[in-house]
Design a protein around this nucleic acid. Structure first.
Length: 332
DNA sequence: GGTAGACCTGGACGC
DNA sequence: GCGTCCAGGTCTACC
């Protein structure tokens, strides 16, 4: 079977670090609870490929931080596709974030040092992260799950992809659609098939901007680019408001802002004991986490995550079909 | 600059 | 089974 090996940072634990943000529950991502393996799919220049990642186990059947990642792929790949596949996984699993950054976070907020929490998984591409963010706005989580599933199902594989990939492996979702595919869609078709509602025009416009090269990931992620400039640039994009911009910023590796939403208000009220209107609580939550500076979002997020895990158990035990799809703030 | 209302979907609820 | 209400963030019009 075609395989790759990736050496992760010395603190990296696949189960903990892949299951660290809701996107690990969205198609085509699939954490296999029973085997402790992360599955996904991606479109590469040479065609679609299904991917399964496992961490090499040490004695006792437990993974050791920093142990190698073995990557199975559904087809043999040339050097270019192997490099792209590796780069997608590095981005998605945040393997490009040095252990020293996580250690610095633990110095600032020692609460997470015992568990080692610090990394947040994301998507293989910025376009995916943007679409997922837009599909998470103004809906309950099960709707987000459904929109992403339908996007992969209807637009993940073209006939050409199927020919190139051969028989698509059973049990794997189709890849997330490329921006070039979404850019060619009629908004009405996208709405009808994927149940994205009024987001249809915004998603197609966003894809067209990405295809035209109007979204410069290198510039957005560059530490030399100011937070304000990044935020303003993101707010210019269709479907991206204050919440989405802040969320995309953390997905870009900028953790200094909190995407404030109804979940922030719930957390402020139920966990932090805050009172007042939603707008007042959002401001107070923001202020509460201000001391964590450049790691503000990490401190906020892992507090939320800890709350979820207290209710539902460790995130790597969440089954995508049951726990993952039923997850709504209102039911917590 | 601040605010009200429309935009869609799917779940909850009442009948 | 049907109709109504509600939650959710963004966008536009209006003050």
């Amino acid at each position: 079977m075609p395989t790759l090996t990736i050496t992760p940072p010395s603190d990296y634990l696949l189960a903990r670090d892949a299951c660290s943000y809701g996107y690990f529950l969205l198609a085509p991502n699939h954490w296999r609870v029973e085997t402790g393996r992360f599955e996904t799919a991606m479109l590469l220049p040479g065609g679609a490929v299904a991917v399964r990642v496992m961490q090499v186990l040490k004695g006792g059947g437990r993974a050791k931080p920093g142990a190698a990642l073995r990557v199975w792929t559904s087809r043999a790949m040339d050097a270019q596709d192997r490099a792209r596949c590796r780069a997608r996984l590095v981005r998605s699993l945040r393997l490009d974030e040095p252990s020293s950054v996580i250690a610095a976070f633990h110095v600032l907020d020692p609460r997470w040092k015992p568990t080692g929490r610090g990394r947040l998984m994301r998507s293989g591409t910025l376009f995916e992260d943007m679409v997922r963010t837009v599909t998470s706005c103004n809906v309950a989580w099960p709707n987000t799950v459904n929109m992403n599933r339908q996007l992969c199902r209807h637009y993940g594989l073209s006939a050409c992809d199927v020919r190139q990939a051969g028989a698509w492996p059973e049990g794997f979702d189709h890849p997330f659609p490329a921006a070039s595919r979404v850019a060619r869609l009629r908004p009405g078709n996208l709405r009808g098939r994927c149940r994205v509602g009024y987001r249809d025009v915004r998603l197609v416009e966003l894809a067209r901007l990405v295809v035209r090269g109007a979204v410069n990931e290198a510039w957005l992620a560059d530490p030399a680019t100011s937070e304000d400039d990044v935020r303003l640039a993101l707010l210019e994009l269709p479907g991206i408001g204050p919440y989405a911009a802040a969320n995309i910023m953390q997905l870009l590796g900028r953790y200094g802002q909190i995407p404030l939403d109804s979940e922030s208000v719930r957390h402020g009220r139920t966990v932090l004991g805050m009172t007042g209107s939603s707008a007042q609580i959002m401001k107070r939550v923001d202020k509460h986490f201000a001391p964590f500076g450049a790691h503000k979002f990490r401190s906020y997020w892992f507090e939320l995550w800890q709350f979820y895990e207290a209710k539902r158990g460790p995130s790597w035990t969440w089954d995508r079909q049951r726990t993952g799809a039923s997850f709504t703030a209102a039911k917590l």
